[in-house]
Design a protein around this nucleic acid. Structure first.
Length: 484
DNA sequence: GCATGATCATGC
DNA sequence: GCATGATCATGC
């Protein structure tokens, strides 16, 4: 089954509207997982690993969660995860949360203390004990195992005054009670379950205690002590309602094994997220998309654009980067210019790369050293976002790389073409500027709305707007030579 | 297949 | 309304 939430459908409809707020509102979490596959569900969960809900949900979802009456109510986070990470309405069925995968989903907090370091804040509750049913059950076919044989546990870092929306998920652990655990642990769980069942069979449900067992406990469950009693099958005496639970001690073994990674998340969370370099920002945003067919990118970003636009692949790139507008703040600050390049199978772009149209009136007054062109090419970095057609003709997002023009190309080829251009404009020949065969690096070509889109020349005759272009073959070479 | 010319969609 | 990034179209 493929998940596609109502909200997402609504978004898609709105995305085709012209409301830019919606168009650029990136939805990071998509629901394209297979709910019959444990691995697929685990991968879905890993979308939040080392992140907080504030970092992965969009503003609409977050404000919906904030509206919840008691945001830090016990158990709310589990419901939020089910709903917003897995697009699943919470229920209390005796079945596992993902029946087809036989997988039960759990969220549980990790606390920190100076003395003990990281440890489980609470026991992990694994469903109510049904006093009536358990007396006739065997471990192997028990209701407990039907529901809890496979646990996917999302550990998050709990801090007293921190909103759960800022708590990072720090460890995602798949626990297959019958296969992953050491045989001694499986035996202990079985023995614990047997001990609990035996006590109930003996009419002693009211005497159950967590101290009876080692890993699996029978913890009390219910709002208040007074309303918390119910009948048991082999005795007239009422017993407290109880649930199975994994004891904190057991969870602490899991936490200890992953202490280093948890410590890193904890540090990040306390300090606030570290400032990132532009390179880190780009890797973080784009690596997940590498080699993805361009067709699949919109479903992954949750942002849809009208295909066929000349800017379509640039739009996809901005969506992958999480852009909220055409400008990307991180890039503005660092003076990075994005360039989208589509390579043919051969590795050569079909098109040369254009730049803004030149101003004939101004260029004749410029010196090369402080010319518009030299400034544009040398003072900023370019981020090439490269798509390439594979052998089957599928266009994939294959590469992202920062690029500067090599100094020798700038001061050699580009300078020569620029000087030739200036000379021609000065002498009244703006209509025949250096073509692609003239130089291996760059050339001049029209760049306007159409041929009637002209600009004035120093000699008084308007000429079709033109710009400098980097030759497609040159771009191919630069991409091929790039290390990253 | 490439050089060259021409144009389109978008957002500011 | 226009600059811009990007791609399309045509003819040799």
């Amino acid at each position: 089954m493929r998940y596609d939430s109502g909200e997402n459908v609504a978004y898609k409809a709105l995305l085709h509207s012209h409301d830019p707020r919606i168009k650029y509102n990136l939805i990071v979490i998509t629901y394209d997982f297979d709910d019959s596959s444990i691995d697929s569900i685990k991968r879905q969960a890993e979308k939040v690993l080392h992140k907080s809900l504030n970092q992965v949900l969009d503003e609409a979802q977050l404000s919906e969660i904030r509206k919840t009456i008691d945001i830090n109510r016990k158990g709310l986070l589990g419901n939020v995860v089910e709903k917003y990470i897995f697009n699943k309405e919470p229920d209390i069925a005796p079945e596992p949360d993902f029946p087809k995968a036989k997988l039960e989903l759990k969220t549980t907090p990790i606390k920190t203390s100076t003395r003990k370091g990281f440890s489980a804040k609470e026991r992990l509750v694994l469903g109510m004990i049904d006093y009536d049913n358990i007396i006739g059950e065997r471990w192997e076919t028990s209701g407990f195992l039907r529901k809890n044989a496979n646990l996917l546990i999302l550990f998050y870092l709990f801090k007293k005054h921190l909103s759960i929306l800022d708590s990072k998920f720090t460890l995602i652990k798949l626990l297959k009670l019958l296969s992953d655990l050491p045989p001694a642990d499986i035996l202990q769980l079985k023995n614990d379950w047997e001990a609990i069942a035996a006590k109930i069979r003996g009419g002693k449900a009211h005497e159950l205690s967590e101290g009876d067992t080692f890993y699996l406990g029978a913890c009390t469950k219910g709002a208040t002590y007074a309303t918390n009693f119910r009948a048991q099958p082999r005795s007239e005496e009422k017993a407290q309602r109880r649930a199975f639970s994994l004891k904190p001690k057991y969870l602490n073994f899991i936490i200890a094994e992953n202490r280093a990674a948890i410590a890193q998340d904890h540090e990040d969370m306390i300090k606030g997220d570290k400032p990132k370099s532009i390179e880190e920002f780009v890797h973080e945003k784009l690596d997940a998309y590498l080699n993805m067919p361009a067709d699949e990118i919109p479903d992954r970003t949750g942002i849809y654009f009208a295909p066929g636009s000349k800017g379509y692949y640039a739009d996809l790139a901005r969506a992958m980067l999480g852009a909220k507008s055409k400008k990307i703040t991180e890039f503005e600050k660092a003076d990075v210019t994005m360039k989208t390049i589509r390579l043919q199978k051969s590795g050569t772009p079909k098109e040369s790369m254009s730049f803004p149209a030149m101003d004939y009136m101004e260029i004749v007054k410029e010196n090369w050293e402080d010319s518009t062109l030299r400034d544009m090419l040398s003072s900023k970095k370019f981020l090439f976002l490269v798509y390439q057609y594979d052998s089957k003709g599928i266009l994939r997002f294959t590469k992202h790389m920062f690029w500067n023009i090599p100094y020798s190309d700038l001061e050699g080829h580009v300078k020569k073409v620029w000087e030739k251009t200036v000379e021609l404009v000065k002498t009244g020949h703006a209509d025949k500027l250096p073509g692609i065969k003239n130089d291996p690096v760059c050339h001049v070509r029209p760049h306007g709305k159409n041929k009637n889109d002209k600009a004035m020349t120093p000699y008084g005759i308007p000429v079709t707007k033109k710009c400098f272009w980097l030759n497609a073959s040159y771009i191919a070479e630069q991409i091929k030579n790039a290390k990253n």
